Computed example of a mutant assay.
Amino acid sequence: MILTEGLTKHYGAFPALSKVSMEVRRGEVYGLLGPNGSGKTTTIRLLLGLLRPTSGSASVDGFDCWRHSLEVRRRISYIPGEVRLPGSVRGYQLLQYLNNLRGGAGMDRAVALAERVMGLDLRRKVRTFSTGMKQKLALAQAFADPVDILILDEPTSALDPSARNDVLRLVTDARTQGQTVIFSGHVLTEVEQVADRVAIMRRGRLMHVEDMHERRRNLRLLLVRFQGAPPAALPEELELSVRDRNGEVLLLEHRGAAGPLLGWLASQPVADLAIGTEDLRALYDRYHGPNPEPDPEDR
Rank of each mutant, 00 (worst) to 15 (best):
N99F: 00
N99C: 15
N100A: 13
L101Q: 08
L101K: 00
A105R: 15
M107G: 02
D108G: 09
D108K: 15
D108Q: 14
R109Y: 00
A112Y: 04
R116K: 14
M118P: 08
G119S: 14
G119A: 11
L120H: 00
D121M: 03
L122D: 06
L122T: 00
R123H: 15
R124W: 07
R124M: 13
R124P: 01
K125R: 15
K125Q: 15
R127C: 11
R127H: 14
R127I: 06
T128V: 04
F129V: 05
G132I: 10
G132S: 09
M133G: 02
K134V: 09
K134D: 06
K134E: 04
K134G: 07
Q135E: 11
K136I: 01
A138N: 08
L139T: 06
L139D: 05
L139I: 14
A140R: 01
A142Y: 09
F143E: 10
A144F: 02
D145W: 01
D145Q: 14
D148C: 01
I149V: 15
L150A: 04
L150D: 02
L150R: 01
I151T: 00
L152C: 07
L152H: 10
L152K: 06
D153G: 08
D153T: 02
E154S: 12
E154A: 12
P155M: 13
P155Q: 14
P155L: 07
